[in-house]
Design a protein around this nucleic acid. Structure first.
Length: 422
DNA sequence: TCTGGGGTCCTAGGACCC
DNA sequence: TCTGGGGTCCTAGGACCC
């Protein structure tokens, strides 16, 4: 019998901000997506005001002002670093960890059943809180799906209000599932929930008791697997080894609509440059590139979405080669007269650099390219991203990201380290 | 004026092969 | 009038996740 725990940070981005600014405690706080567009993290106080996940900022301006909500731009340097610190804490409890997302990890507790796992979970929470300042909840169950559900219950204080919930017990599970709506299940999104509701499947218990064949025809094998997991039969194991990444994307909405081709190109070159950095950091080369540019679906502008692709052969991590491909793709998809709102580059067919298929016809000076890229990366990591960049990337105008209230990179930039006076 | 970004997995359908 | 069957591979699109 397997036992999994899911450790999930509470309102993670908000909690990170609160660690460095205690004045944010006890008041409504929200963190915005890129471009200061939508809320992607909310404190409990903000949730209580009815602001939903993904709510666009401009739609709730009034409410924000009335309740003096603290609104922050997202600070990924901070959140990424805090996330790594939490994983370090968890590593002290077990080596069997799957880092599931920036604020969630699964732990394999199989074989620890002789211990009081609620107490163990409390120990994890206390350690993470003491060492990083971040509050978490712990969900425990015989399958990943049940550990997820347990975590949900812990967050909502549905079982005993202790922020740790153990769903190994059948009766506890029954009770929770009967009163939990089906769309709270991990893997049941809006579409599937609508299909299920139409068939009279409303609660998690209803889904658990559904005929698996029926579920499969409605929701494919994913749905069938979820039902088995809800019944306590583990279908998913922990991914302890990091799987090689399959694709990589850099896409952004513009701060203002882009009309000219040069401007669009300079945005794309900036994104491709960033994509190249990500490739090299991961020791990867890309064999395929997709580029897209589109108008806004919200503004009522004439719609256009252009997208084109190219195979990158031989596969490369050289920013300038990638820019060449992107430029040619843009030439094919560019249409004048539209107000472009977003563009991006997606790299796929990723392989580890050493493993890439070499080509007999390859006449590139790869050694020179490698040295140039290494030099650029060294300068930019030491002096800040974009210190050295391709010339075409420099024509930043209105497309640059809006970030009106980003907090300092407290933990990753020396200049931003907080000063304590005593 | 202002509506995120970056991933994974699954399936259907087309192309191709013998 | 007749028009196979079965396999693989690839891609686009849908759904979901945080």
């Amino acid at each position: 019998m397997t036992v999994f725990a899911l450790v999930d940070a509470n309102n993670f981005y908000v909690s990170c901000e609160r660690v460095f600014n205690p004045r944010l405690e006890g008041v409504p706080v929200g963190v915005l997506s890129n471009n200061d567009g939508c809320f992607v993290a909310r404190s409990n106080e903000l949730k209580a005001l009815g602001v939903k996940m993904g709510e666009p900022l401009f739609k709730v301006r009034d409410l924000i002002r009335r309740h003096n909500v603290r609104v922050l731009s997202s600070n990924y340097a901070l959140y990424g670093d805090m996330s790594a610190r939490i994983v370090d804490c968890l590593s002290c409890f077990t080596p069997d960890i799957e880092i599931y997302s920036i604020d969630e990890s699964f732990l394999d507790l199989t074989g620890m059943e002789h211990r009081d796992l609620i107490e163990y979970g409390q120990g994890i929470r206390a350690t993470v809180k003491r060492w990083t300042g971040i509050p978490t909840c712990v969900g425990i169950g015989p399958t990943k799906t049940l550990a997820k559900l347990a975590n949900f219950a812990a967050k909502k204080a549905l079982i005993d209000g202790t922020s740790v919930c153990d769903l190994r017990d059948q009766e506890v599970r029954d009770k929770l599932m009967t009163r939990t709506p089906v769309d709270e299940v991990w893997g049941i999104g809006r579409r599937s929930a609508a299909k299920l509701t139409a068939l009279g499947v409303h609660s998690v218990a209803d889904l658990r008791d559904m005929d698996t064949k029926r579920a499969r025809s409605l929701l494919t094998v994913t749905g069938e697997r979820i039902i088995h997991e809800l019944r306590g039969m583990a279908c998913m194991s922990l991914d302890l080894l990091e799987e090689p990444q399959k694709g990589l994307a850099v896409t952004r909405s513009f701060g203002q609509p882009v009309i000219g081709k040069d401007e669009l190109l300079s945005a794309l070159v900036t994104y491709v440059t960033r994509a190249g950095e990500k490739l090299r950091r991961g020791g990867l080369v890309a064999g395929h590139m997709q580029v897209f540019a589109r108008t806004s679906p919200f503004r009522g502008d004439p719609p256009y979405s252009g997208s084109g692709q190219a195979s990158v052969s031989p596969a490369t991590d050289d920013t300038f080669e990638l820019i060449g491909h992107a430029t040619r793709i843009l030439d094919r998809i560019w249409k004048p007269g539209f107000r472009y709102a977003k563009a991006g580059v997606i790299l796929t067919d990723l392989t580890p650099r050493g493993q890439a298929q070499p080509s007999l016809l390859d006449r590139r000076d790869t050694d020179r390219s490698k040295r140039l890229m290494a030099a650029m990366d060294a300068v930019n990591s030491g002096m800040g991203r974009g210190t050295i960049r391709p010339g075409m990337a420099s024509a930043t105008k209105g497309w640059g990201m809006r970030q009106e209230s980003r907090t300092p990179a407290y933990t990753t930039q020396f200049a931003d380290v907080p000063v304590v006076r005593a």
